[in-house]
Design a protein around this nucleic acid. Structure first.
Lengths: 219, 219
DNA sequence: TATACAATCGCACATTCGTGGTATATTCCA
DNA sequence: TGGAATATACCACGAATGTGCGATTGTATA
């Protein structure tokens, strides 16, 4: 998806960063770079989203992850919804892997650390335009860790196989009566199992149990 | 988590790769590298897992993703279950992003392309030992895309904001009565909303709705 | 061998759900 | 201006759930 830019056809970039000073530094750097143009600088997602309604969407948005008002993660969602082809690079500080992770999930293409040299931002933009994902090794690792922790078998509440089997069927929208028929059990048995499941999961409703199953990847 | 190795204290590496020729090439390269030792070369996960029962687990396993018998993805799970501290690097071919993705989810630390120069493998091992995740930019991007596609495809059933709000509370295990209190609404109103939610989601039970919410990433 | 655990089955009863109706006020848009 | 959509509210009733008590079998396993 690489594009070639002449001086006349520059890649359009928007900045969303509430630190005016940092924003200005970045904007200048971008405009000094051949093939790039910083079209707008905003201090909030709201402003940028408003502008997006009446302007050509940019190729790239550099988006601060910790903004007042609508934060960067929510911002990514909205930008992506309004203009899916726009690439978003998060600006973030150290030790914010949760937010980075969420932003990536929401559709961000990568991120750069604010305290790295501003030139890195230019590199990151080039990388994104070339179809890459700016992410250093240690952060890729962090992301994978979080990823794994989300996808891998999680909390075990000591559910027995039978309980898991029944819970699985309940999760899929079945009723106790139907499950009893399906497993050739008495309704009372299913009832008892479900009672024990509730105790183990510490919930009092089926929806709570189902929710827990998905949130913590049980079964 | 970086470790320093003297010649006496080499990092132990295992290979699991059914192509004997490639396995041999890698093993030689590893043994020529200071601080690394290829302890075993297997042609199947089963063999390697068996050996793991009676041997010190290695620091790193290079694992072919497309093996006969137990495939690499399943292999990762088993290795990780038996020895969580072992780092696993997948050996893969191009255009196998699904498997790479699954392997990463299962706990792999990164991967390298088989057709890249074998020296890359050494670099990847060093990177993993240093706490990184060997993944080039374009593959990080692929992973994120898959990631996003798993996390993002929000089916839209035309739920209104109010309906979403109520559904969100129900999902968390609340009851209609409590929600009514919480939102300063009549029980009947909540009831009506939920009725409409069921119609829109085409379900007849709360568990079915909750399940749909998680499966299709609504809300 | 004793005992803990899992799986099975039972009853009763209050609570909550699911679903069929109907109805009013507001807002938005054609 | 006049529907369409949304949010609000009410009623009734059978069905299902949640939870309090039990009980009897096996099967491990300490």
């Amino acid at each position: 998806m690489g594009k070639k830019q002449s001086l006349a056809q520059r890649v359009t970039i928007w900045l969303v960063e509430d630190n005016i000073h940092f924003q200005k530094t970045l904007a200048e750097l971008i405009n000094e770079t051949e093939g790039m143009r910083c079209a707008f600088g905003f201090t909030s997602c709201e402003e940028a989203l408003k502008t997006l309604e009446s302007s050509e969407p940019p190729e790239v948005i550099l988006l601060d992850i910790g903004l007042p008002g609508m934060d960067g993660v929510e911002g990514v969602k909205q930008f992506k919804a309004a203009s899916p082809s726009t690439n978003i690079i998060m600006l973030t500080i150290h030790d914010d892997s949760i937010n980075v992770f969420n932003a990536l999930c929401a559709g961000a293409s990568g991120y750069i650390l604010k305290d790295s040299s501003p030139e890195n931002a230019i590199e990151a933009i080039k990388e994104v335009l070339a179809g890459g994902a700016p992410m250093n090794a240690s952060i890729a690792h962090t992301v994978l860790d979080l990823f794994t922790s989300l996808a891998a078998p999680k909390g075990n509440y000591g559910l027995t196989d039978r309980e898991k089997e029944i819970l699985k069927l309940m999760v899929n929208g079945s009723t106790k009566k139907k499950i009893a028929k399906q497993l050739f059990l008495s309704f009372h048995t299913v009832n008892t199992h479900l009672k024990n499941i509730y105790i183990k999961l510490q919930v009092h409703t089926l929806s709570g149990a189902v929710s827990k199953v998905y949130k913590e990847n049980l079964l």
